[in-house]
Amino acid sequence: MNYVFVSSHLFYCTITFHFFPTYKIVYFSSHKHNSHMKKDSSFTDCISSFRTLSLTLVAINRVLLAQYASFPINGADLYDELLSSTAILSTGNESLDKLLDSGLYTGEVTELIGSPGSGKTQVCLGVAANVACELKRNVVYIDSTGGLSASRLLEIVKSKVSTAEQQLDALRRIYVTEVFDIFSMLKVLQTLRTGGFPESPSGSSSLKAVIVDSVRAVLLPVIGGNQIEGLSLMMQLAGELRMISRDFCVAVLVTNHVIRESNGAVKPGLGRSWSHVPRTRILLQHVNSEMTTQNGLRRATLLKSSRQPCQISEEFCLGSWNHHKVVKEAKEDSIPEEAH
C-alpha cells in the first residue's frame, strides 16, 4: 500500500509560485497584445489571438507545474530520507528516552510541561549536558526565566566525564543567551536561522539541539486582554521553532506551564493554538504532590506523540543526572566563611 504525504509547507510554496507568475504573464502579455492590436482588427482576430494566448498560458502553466509542484513520494523513499537526515538525541535519562522512543528527534519540536518545581528546567539542563557531553554536539540554550545554572550543568557533566578538560569542552559546546521579551526571542531565533550562530571550530552544522526555557515567560505578558497581536506573535514563534527544527535538522525542546482545571486535572498552557505546535509533549509531575515530600522523584507522562501510545508514564529521579557526592562537596565549598 502506498501512502501519499503532502507537506503543507511545500504545497503552500508551490501555490504562491504557481499563481503569481501566471498572473503576471497574463497581465503582461495581454497588455502587449492590446498595444499591438489595431483599431480595425476584427472580432475573430481578437478571439484567435486570445486563444493562442490562452494556449501559450496553458503551456507555461505546465512548465511551471513541472518545475515547482510537489509530487507524491512513496513511503519507502520518505523513510530513507528520514533515516539519512534524522538523528535521535538521547536525553541521558533512560525513563525519558523510553517515553520519547529513544530520545529527542531532530526536525521536531518537543514540549515539556509541568507545574512549578516539577523539574522542567532540570530536564532541559540534563538534555543540554548530555548532547554536549556524550554526543559532542553544540547546543543552544535560550533562557527566559533566569533558571539556567552553569554550576548545575557542571555537576551533571562531572557525572559523565572525569577529566576537567573534557568537562570544560562539554560546557563550551553549550551556547546560552538570555531573553526577556518576545521580540528579542524572535530576534534570537531569526539570527539563528539566518546563520547568525557564533562560529565554532567544527562549524555550525554540529548544532543539534535548541532548548527554549520557557516559552511561557515571554508569551504570557503579551497574550490575554485585548491584545490582538499576541496571538500572531505566538504563531510567529511557533513558525520559527518549526522552521529551525526542519531547516537545520535540530531537535527543539521547549518548556511550558500547565493550567489546573477546577477538577484538579491539568492541561497544557497557552491555549489551543499553541497545543498543535509541538510534535511530542511530556507532562512532568511530582510523584507525591505533598509539599513536604522532597525526594526528587518525578513522573513523566507522554501526552502527545506520533510514535508511541499516549498516557504511558515513567518515574525517574531528578538527581539521577549526577552523583550526589559531587553535590555535597560543591556545597561545602560555597558556604561563606562568616556563616559559621
Binding site: P221, V222, G225, N226, Q227, I228, E229, G230
Partner: peptide, 9 residues
C-alpha cells in the same frame, strides 16, 4: 496597566 504591546496598538 497596559502592556507595552497594547499601548503600541
Amino acid at each position: 496597566s497596559l502592556s507595552g504591546l497594547e499601548l503600541q496598538t
